[in-house]
Design a protein around this nucleic acid. Sequence first.
DNA 1: TTTTGGAACGAAAACGATGTATTATTAATA
DNA 2: TATTAATAATACATCGTTTTCGTTCCAAAA
Lengths: 346, 346
Amino acid sequence: MKRKLTLKLIAKELDVSISTVSKALRDSAEISEDTRQKIKAFAKLYNYKPNNIALSLKNRKTRTIGIIIPQIVHHFFTTVIRGVEQMAREHNYNVIICLSNNDFDKEVLNMELLANGSTDGFILSLAKETLQKDDFRHLTETIDQGMPVVMFDRVVDEIPCDKVLIDDREGAKMGVTHLLKTGCRKIAIITTEDYVTVGKLRTKGYIEALESYDIKVDPDNILKLDSIDRCDQGCVAKIKHFLKGKDLDGVFTVNELFAVEASKALRTFGHNVPDDVSIVCFSDGDLSKYATPSLTTVSQHGEQMGRKAAELLINKLERPEEEEEEYTTAYIETSLIARESTKKLK
Amino acid sequence: MKRKLTLKLIAKELDVSISTVSKALRDSAEISEDTRQKIKAFAKLYNYKPNNIALSLKNRKTRTIGIIIPQIVHHFFTTVIRGVEQMAREHNYNVIICLSNNDFDKEVLNMELLANGSTDGFILSLAKETLQKDDFRHLTETIDQGMPVVMFDRVVDEIPCDKVLIDDREGAKMGVTHLLKTGCRKIAIITTEDYVTVGKLRTKGYIEALESYDIKVDPDNILKLDSIDRCDQGCVAKIKHFLKGKDLDGVFTVNELFAVEASKALRTFGHNVPDDVSIVCFSDGDLSKYATPSLTTVSQHGEQMGRKAAELLINKLERPEEEEEEYTTAYIETSLIARESTKKLK
DNA sequence: TTTTGGAACGAAAACGATGTATTATTAATA
DNA sequence: TATTAATAATACATCGTTTTCGTTCCAAAA
């Protein structure tokens, strides 16, 4: 096991000073053509690569972006990561990913850890527990320390930072409107509790869509579940109970899993999808694509969100010190992908 | 925007030396109780946290593990990451994730980048292109530099490092045997080209299972696709063409996507799953669980793989310098999850 | 002969932290 | 009173770079 090559070692080996080596490698005119060539040849031969840690310390820049997300076994988040990764790579940044597991303490720990020199800035989506606790000190503190933060998807308004959102309200409205256009009139929604911003907004879009068709919103047709990304036994039971015996011709859900379960439940009750009841859901993953029947979805374009978030962050990082602080909120368009769970438009 | 607090700043503020501050904070007996309290109070008040980069440089340890995987929008890999993350967290390590996108050059670049000080060791699964090219210099070089590497899932034998594998052969054998036990006799396999080790081994398991039932292997019943994680239009067409008009009662596939497409194709051709043709696949993701019919799978336990890989790496990292170099290959057990795509065992 | 100026290189500080070696101060001992 | 020991603090080197500022050396100009 040979020790990693450093400037110092090269200097000793070639009997010149460290500064000379450094300058030669960076093609400084101060160094004679001869010495320069000699040093470069040596460095190349032994595959010298500068130590990133030393550079980070010196430059007080790591060229690393930290992403903190609630979950990684999750299609949407992985697409976002992919987007961030792409953009980061294009701008010569690295990416560190940390998982909060929807746990407040872990989120705080992760931020503290990464904030102590490991990254130049953050991209994050809040843990469920953080949203419930309504405690964002770890965020404001990090921002106060001059570390740029970009929030996406699960954000809170009061934090002063860039944000990337999809227009959940508009997306939901589009989804529900698709149900309305294909003839549905008795439409239920399966959503999350209101502390999850996205759930709340999607519920709002649902209501707006109905109202624009002059349909009264029936609270009995709204099911709020205390789950964000998972659909455990409890949820399944609630969905079944909710749908049982209800007179519906359309169901809108805020994620794929709820939709798949709803679809199963409806078929259990003898309903045909989409002939008796149509289904539209948010989030476009493999599940929607490969389920039977495949699901009509409102696609979130996670990759685009990731790219946008990274772009905003990198802008902040490379902006000259003096520039005025200013926060952007970017919206990513959703789009409707019609599949088998809804009837054809006439 | 206040500047991050450093030892130097605290020292200046309290009019003591930097060493004194450092020692006080680490509870050194060299510093008087009085000064110690004063310094600690100050540090706490202004929320001092040591700079990780400086520490990494000093200690020549980053306490960071690098993971390089071909893809992140992929259930199996995300479960592995989750496992690595857990184990890393338990041992106070950080995790950096990089994506190779199945691209050789990107894999090399990522490794070089992370090897230059950013991480203490690697966990990786090879890019498809790397396997095809059969060029592993970036790996051997990294290992030569004394950086421990653990490979998982997509490995190559000749690299001297720890490895974590599932017993693909045995897993496939178990899956195919399940088909045999439930009465299937004319079983096809949809697998990958042989340069993908896992595909090759699974094909082997398929053959062994058939042979143990004295069934002759029919080359016409083996479809090798040039795709690892995705199932694009080309694949779908090949699967349809392969299954069309074939007299089969069982299909084994090396991943979920192939199985879902096979299932669809079979239904298109008027076959009922599982009554006419049963299906078993490798990889246990949401798709298998939520497809209709849900799929009987050989579960890979990615999380366990991740944990094991991290454990092996951390062992290497914390082992005393002098200790004998020795490489382990760990196998993770697979298990069969019976669902609706196969008939009940009698 | 002395001055000037450029070419080619080296010394040293800095980034932030740690730990070893030293020094300064005071109290206890001979 | 002189010496020793203990206490409390500081100086300094180090990790690997970059960069500013000197320093040498030598040839050309005065």
